[in-house]
Design a protein around this nucleic acid. Structure first.
Length: 754
DNA sequence: GGGGGCTATGGGGGG
DNA sequence: CATAGCCCCC
């Protein structure tokens, strides 16, 4: 009725608009690459808010934090700051947030630890060892993924132990005790007050399904409208949770899923396209919208993508088209070695930048495996081209960072067995494997955490006193936490008291210095967290506890860092590139055994998934697409000779520029590092409005309405109002979107200007 | 219990 | 090639 008055609707094509303005009932949007999918999602949410749906009743589940953040920013540009109260985030982060409030209802502490992949692997390894199993047959990674897959399909340890198919499969692979490891694994996580990534989904499901204190109705009422992005990448469990939210008596089924079967690339972690088909069955009065116009790529790229994906058998019928002008064909380049490939790509980047006036940020290099990034780094560095690697080892996975985080985890939740194992003897305090094994045995007998066994263990005098010292350390840290110290003060205290800092200070090697820098970067990050003083209207008051900090970082990935950073060439895996676009894209390493991966060659389904992955990669390009492959490359430490990828033959010939003949060049000799590049991971790039040197915050109790003040991040502004909770409303001059910020004076760093 | 040096082994994508 | 795990010696 009022839709005509909303100007953003003019920015949509007919189909997009129909999908946006239908605000009731189930909707499915099949969205080809570059078809304005994000635009539909964001405008749909903006539209819901405009017609009066409270933002906090909207739940939007995305695939990455980055996608959620961008979506929120774009909604905010349309409807203002109320957009921030939309529940937008990844499945994992949204459910973690809910579980922080509700976990006690299903037998977990609300301050539960989140185990990352390393933690779970270490736990599985420990169980394999303690059960005296052959660790060749029982590969921790394989067992871990069996457990993960079981959870994702709602198969409990009990169901597993009664499932003849799964047992047979394990027997055939000479690991019949897998079910037992699974059972012990679950018990261990439980008594450690820990959830792994799958638990964030599984326990969320349990919470809704078992429905203690009618908690399900609470969330069904709260979330009146659900939206799911990248639905093709959801697994069985995620879909079951979705249905728990949506299916109840007289439910309006306000659920909108957006996805593209052709871009389903995560079956290895349980994603299933079946969910799309199932959705059509489960919601028969569904309206389906197909977005087929591609606004991103030029004709040849779209033709190539259509050509390639046509080789897949099963797919939802659609035809992607574009009216973008441009006769740029796809370049396919063959090189003699992986080194040569790196050099050619770097040279071409220089050339493109000059010839087409591109900047670094217009360019991406996409590879199948993260290990391929090395040669490109090397040559980009030589050419003095700024770059950034996304993915790979994230900052939070570095050893020294994990060590300090483990102490923080122990402080928040001392029952966290994995954290305890990590730090009980780091820095060295004379508590070795035999002591830990004793603790493990007692813990197992009594089904308690390692921490809880400490008062009961019998050891030699010396071991006892070492152990008592460790326990006292943790108890002291916990005392400080109970006294209300904020996360930063605690983190500094922990880094000193634990001895981590002094241990690293004695190491004067380059590595040691780097580690210390990383620790400081971590502490800076905690400081950042504590000093963030912006209040989001209607949200809980700012929580600066260590537990809250740990929660805030548990689910961030390498993709989420440094969003402000520009002017770098992006290097990332083909998986990580989903949802992004660049003027110029290089898809490298197009060889058999690499892309498609040798792991996928035996199964037609997996080859099809590799093809979809290639489809995703090439559709990132707006204007220039360059594909390279190499005659030879170092793989697994030795020289390999792979054939060109089968996917190259599937590119329609008329979309390809003549294959550029291989040019032999002399080698460069020893690589010379030209400097001026930054190591990845430890940067903390925050846009500051002013030079911190010139910033001298005043006592915030002196701040009064009408004053002119300076804020480190937001710049100059006028204090409009201060309410009874000492939250100031300040309008900042240089903030374009929503210049009025709510700042909690308790944490505020403000300098008075007049 | 700690540390150094050697051997064996595995090496995909990510929340 | 990188790392985990093992053995041996202190």
């Amino acid at each position: 009725m009022q839709e005509v008055t909303h100007s953003y609707l003019d920015e949509l094509n007919d189909i997009q608009r129909q999908a946006v303005v239908q605000t009731e009932g189930p909707i499915m949007v099949i969205a080809g690459p570059g078809s304005g999918k994000t635009r539909v999602l964001t405008y749909k949410i903006a539209h819901l808010i405009n017609i009066g749906v409270p933002p906090w009743q909207i739940l939007a589940l995305t695939f990455t934090n980055k996608a959620a953040r961008e979506m929120k920013e774009r909604i905010e540009a349309v409807v203002g700051s109320s957009a921030r109260r939309v529940w937008a985030g990844t499945f994992h982060s949204i459910f973690a947030r809910i579980l922080r409030v509700e976990a006690h209802r299903i037998g977990y502490p609300n301050d539960f630890t989140i185990y990352d992949t390393d933690d779970t692997k270490s736990l599985v390894n420990e169980l394999i060892k303690s059960m005296d199993l052959d660790k060749k047959a029982y590969n921790a990674g394989v067992i871990r993924s069996r457990i993960s897959a079981s959870k994702s399909n709602l198969i409990t340890p009990k169901a597993y132990s009664q499932n003849e198919d799964m047992l047979n499969y394990d027997r055939m692979n000479r690991r019949p005790m897998t079910y037992k490891i699974y059972e012990k694994y679950v018990a261990r996580c439980k008594r450690s007050g820990a959830m792994d990534f799958d638990d964030l989904l599984l326990q969320m499901f349990r919470l809704l399904y078992e429905n203690p204190d009618n908690v399900k109705e609470k969330y069904q009422r709260q979330f009146s409208h659900l939206l799911v992005d990248e639905f093709q990448d959801t697994n069985f469990l995620q879909y079951e949770i979705l249905k728990q939210f949506v299916n109840y008596e007289d439910s309006p089924h306000n659920v909108c899923i957006v996805g593209d079967d052709a871009q389903s690339i995560y079956s290895f972690r349980g994603a299933t396209i079946e969910n799309i088909l199932q959705f059509e069955t489960d919601f028969p009065n569904l309206n389906t919208f197909k977005l087929e116009q591609n606004y991103r790529s030029s004709q040849h790229i779209v033709d190539a993508a259509n050509g390639v994906i046509g080789y897949n058998r099963r797919q939802i019928d659609k035809k992607i088209w574009t009216d973008k002008i441009g006769d740029q064909k796809i370049k396919v380049i063959k090189t003699i070695s992986d080194n040569e490939e790196g050099r050619r790509v770097a040279d071409l980047i220089i050339e493109q930048k000059h010839r087409h006036n591109l900047s670094n940020s217009d360019i991406a290099i996409l590879y199948r495996t993260n290990a391929q990034s090395r040669v490109f780094e090397e040559f980009l560095r030589r050419q003095n081209i700024q770059y950034r690697i996304y993915g790979g080892l994230s900052f939070y996975q570095r050893k020294e960072v994990k060590d300090l985080l483990a102490y923080m985890r122990m402080t928040v939740n001392p029952n966290d067995d994995e954290a305890l194992k990590r730090v009980i003897n780091y820095p060295k305090r004379g508590i070795g494997a035999s002591t830990v094994n004793k603790l493990l045995a007692i813990a197992d007998d009594n089904q308690v955490s390692l921490w809880q066994t400490i008062p009961h263990v019998q050891l030699s005098k010396r071991a006892m006193s070492n152990l008592a010292e460790f326990a006292a350390l943790i108890a002291t840290l916990r005392k400080h936490m109970a006294e209300g110290k904020n996360a930063y003060d605690l983190a500094v205290l922990i880094s000193k008291r634990s001895g981590i800092v002094s241990a690293l200070k004695t190491d004067n090697t380059m590595e040691g210095v780097g580690r210390l820098e990383n620790l400081n970067a971590l502490l800076d990050g905690v400081k950042d967290f504590v000093e963030n003083d912006e209040v989001i209207e209607g949200e809980n008051p700012l929580d600066k506890t260590l537990a809250s900090y740990l929660q805030s970082i548990a689910l961030i990935t390498d993709m989420d860092n440094d969003k402000e950073e520009k002017e770098t060439v992006s290097l990332m895996s083909t998986h990580a590139c989903k949802g992004l676009e660049f003027k110029s894209v290089f898809v490298v390493g197009m060889e058999e055994n690499l892309f498609p991966s040798y792991m996928s060659l035996s199964s037609p389904d997996q080859i099809e998934e590799e093809r979809r992955l290639f489809y995703v990669a090439i559709t990132r390009a707006e204007e220039y697409l360059t594909i390279t492959y190499s005659n030879s490359r170092y793989q697994h430490g030795q020289m390999r000779f792979n054939d060109p990828s089968r996917f190259l033959e599937e590119l329609p010939p008329e979309t390809i520029d003549s294959v550029i003949p291989l040019k032999q060049k002399q080698g460069f000799g020893e690589p010379k590092i030209l400097g001026n590049f930054k190591p990845t991971g430890l940067k903390r790039v925050k846009k500051l409005m002013i030079d911190p040197q010139n910033f001298h915050p005043d006592d915030s109790s002196k701040i009064k309405p009408g004053m002119r003040v300076l804020h480190l991040k937001f710049g100059e502004g006028n204090v409009l109002d201060i309410d009874e909770r000492f939250v100031a409303t300040i309008e900042f001059d240089q903030i374009a979107v929503n210049p009025k910020k709510r700042i909690m004076l308790q944490y505020a760093k403000l300098q008075i200007l007049d």
